[in-house]
Design a protein around this nucleic acid. Sequence first.
RNA 1: GCGCCCGUAGCUCAGUUGGAUAGAGCGCACGGUUCCUAACCUUGAGGUCGCAGGUUCGAAUCCUGCCGGGCGCGCCA
Length: 583
Amino acid sequence: MKSAIAQFLNDALAGLPELADAIGDLDIGSTVERTRDASHGDFASNIAMRLAKPARRSPRDLAAAIVEQLPDTDQIDKVEIAGPGFINFSLSPAAFHAEIVTMLDLADEYGRHAPRSAPRILLEFVSANPTGPLHVGHGRHAAYGATVGNLLEAVGYPVHREYYVNDAGRQMDILGVSVWLRWLERGGTQLAFPTAGYRGEYIGDIAAAINTDDIDVVDQETLMEGVPADAPDGDKEAHIEALIGRAKTLLGDDGFDRLRQQAIDSIRDDIEEDLAEFGVTFDRWFSEQSLTKSSRIDDTLAVLDERGMLYKKDGATWFRAMDFGDEKDRVVIRENGAKTYFASDIAYHFDKRERGFDHLIDILGADHHGYVTRVKAGLDAMGYKAEDLKVELVQFVALYRGGKKVKMSTRSGEFDTLRQLRADVGNDAARFFYVSRSNDQHLDFDLDVAKSQSNDNPVYYIQYAHARIASVFRQLAEKNYAWDEANGRASLSLLTEAQEKALMTALSRYPEVVDLAAGNLAPQHLVHYLRDLANDFHTYYNAHVFIVGDDSLRDARLALCAATRHVIANGLIILGVSAPESM
RNA sequence: GCGCCCGUAGCUCAGUUGGAUAGAGCGCACGGUUCCUAACCUUGAGGUCGCAGGUUCGAAUCCUGCCGGGCGCGCCA
């Protein structure tokens, strides 16, 4: 409907060629918005005020000239000039009725755009290190990323969802050695578990499940040979580093690799299953190892070197990040010859672009914000534009239990898992709650409230509206009525109650809300809209009986209910929340 | 110290890219079901939009400076 208003304005401006310069490249659609107050009509445009200065005419004068040129249409009842120069449009009932018919016609497709082939979007999210189960913070990334993906698809973009698996590097060695030590413990070896190791219970579970045919038991003395003391007496990092060395010596490099890989695979599979149960799936799980093992990183560094963007200093190789706006240059190859995480990340983002994705979106934790500039710099240096990459930062989830903040640490194993949360509050409530706040806002997740009062969650309020409509149609059959849809469509002019008008107005906003939420990568717009829509429906439900004796009025009201059901279901599907037939 | 994010009702948060009288939920107060699901609805109280300037027809929104909170500033990932 909004685009129709914009079109009318465009038509009117076509009749005022003297304004062409003043208009310039102004997007007329951006001047049209829903009114907040019904006394201002349904839509308002501030175009006269926007053009006033460049056209050197008074806003009200301009508005009058534009209104004069508006085409004659049965969609608009009334146009008024108000306040400093707003043009207020009151749509005709027929315009709303036509929109309801569109909802019924398009059904599942209402609010969606036709698929387009470009730009291709690569959406990377979660990408949690495979060092343990996902915790409640990752859950927010999963829900947010999945919903953003759904929104982008709804507006027609091809979206490729990717999870970057950090399955290379020192963290993985620590994981491997943690599992090995737990396995040795199970075999009876006495040992003090390293403070820098992963202490979570799941490590023991993995140790119990892995194939250890080619691993020999070692006693404590052999194990600890040459290993410096752990904290607090010694350095915990040096301690675990030495243990990794012992593992590689005692198991052989290949043996340790196999053990480590089993641990990684086990955790990765667990994460994949967890997310799938949460309704979050990926098109590809991109392994960092695949970059390390292929020549991808070396190739990338070679290109950078060729372009003169690398230099050596203090035995290390540095990338001239400062040339691209970073605050300092960054190491890509350490003095010990090891490539940094940053080096593989340049290669990874370069690879994304090389695979033909036009627009990259990374959803990262807020603690990664210092990282954004240098990754963009890397992309820039590799010949692409920094703007090709958009980074959305997701702020932390603070967990509260008994009114107290819960501390979380993966290494200590003290954290609440996404699985526990899903079991406690349910997938629907979790998906909904996670995206109900702006991603750049801290999220306080009170477990006690979520667990004990889960029925107060607004998600049920919206689902209830959907279930109520389904119930109305069930009741209809029980009362031996049938919905004559054609008659309902033809009788929409009978819907004259205030609540009916309000509901139709709310329904017609849906496509605009999807556009807004997708354009801003901001699912909370949809969440709040659905809450408001459900409120409009519940109000209508309480004010009027739908299943009345008058055939045409009943059919018309049922048509409005059916349209409402489509819109609520479409919105919930985007949020990854179920739309139940009964509750 | 530097950088990024945040500051809106008692609490938790929205606020349509600068619009008209700043909104919702919870909580609080008052009402509403012999009738399609009361997991519901109606009405009300509750605000110095952190503070101070600036930009303009118009600012919660943009700019500057303070104050307060979070996060980051490694040859870790």
